[in-house]
């Protein structure tokens, strides 16, 4: 106990609450908590692992980083920001939670997210399911062809890939092309009827970015850069991501 008290009142080593204060304007209001509990009462993660956002903030303010990281609660917050929305002081608790995620060594972060992030880093498609450029193009063209050949009135349906200079660059979650490709068709039909000038790209087509959730800033940045470059290379004006 004595050691604990010294750690809190003395010069503590940089904990994630200090890092966040440095990052955010006005220190992110992190010291202004009124302990009203509005954040916790509307947080769906309240009660999991005996934790809630207000408690998290108190513990972080006390420099209890280790205790916080004992459970997996930081991975159970979805970064939904409802707590900020209802907080009278607009305290950014999710940013704090995000920084707590970052303090875990990379390979100790949840395997599923880690695997998805690593997979996305392998191809320029950024697909967390590892779908390649060729696979994606093949599936899209194959499905579109099938619709043109079988459905009356859709002989002109297009699902363009790498169409230079299209107005919209559309991202696509990996799940459809990989597991249920026919689910892509309704959206294509709507874009067709709306007369939208759009395209997919073989590079950077995947909408998901698990590296962001994993709090792996460099990989996150890499993924965003690959996608942005794909949009630029095709000369598209708008980048649509429904994720």
């Amino acid at each position: 106990m004595a050691e604990e008290a010294i750690k809190i009142s003395g010069k503590k080593k940089s904990s994630f609450i200090d890092q966040v204060k440095k990052l955010l304007p006005e220190g992110g209001n992190l010291n202004l908590c009124l302990t009203c509990g509005a954040c916790s009462s509307g947080c769906p993660a309240t009660g999991l692992e005996g934790m809630d956002p207000r408690k998290f903030l108190r513990m972080a303010a006390l420099g209890m980083d280790e205790e916080i990281l004992k459970s997996d609660w930081v991975w159970m917050c979805t970064m939904c920001q409802r707590c900020i929305y209802v907080c009278p002081m607009k305290i950014d608790i999710p940013q704090l939670i995000f920084n707590a995620r970052r303090t875990k060594p990379r390979d100790e972060r949840p395997k599923g997210i880690l695997g998805s992030c690593n997979m996305a880093l392998k191809h320029d498609t950024c697909s967390a399911m590892g779908a390649s450029e060729e696979d994606f193009q093949f599936v899209v063209e194959d499905v579109a062809e099938e619709v043109r050949n079988t459905q009356v009135g859709w002989e002109e349906l297009q699902a363009p890939v790498n169409k230079q200079g299209a107005m919209y660059f559309l991202n696509q979650n990996s799940r459809e092309p990989v597991t249920e490709p026919d689910e892509m068709v309704p959206l294509w039909k709507i874009l067709h009827l709306g007369g939208a000038d759009w395209t997919y790209g073989t590079k950077g087509w995947a909408a998901e970015n698990y590296c962001m959730f994993m709090a792996d800033d460099e990989s996150w940045k890499h993924i965003v850069e690959v996608k942005a470059k794909a949009v630029d290379d095709l000369g598209c004006k708008y980048w649509l991501n429904t994720e």
């Binding site: 509307g42 769906p44 997996d72 991975w75 159970m76 917050c77 979805t78 970064m79 939904c80 409802r82 929305y85 209802v86 949840p110 395997k111 599923g112 997210i113 998805s116 967390a128 698990y210 959730f213 994993m214």
Partner: peptide, 18 residues
């Protein structure tokens, strides 16, 4: 609307193995 509850699929939760 803006006050809605999150469904729990976001933030990597679906992939986190929990």
């Amino acid at each position: 609307r803006s006050n809605n509850y999150c469904c729990g699929g976001g933030g990597g939760f679906l992939q986190s193995g929990m």
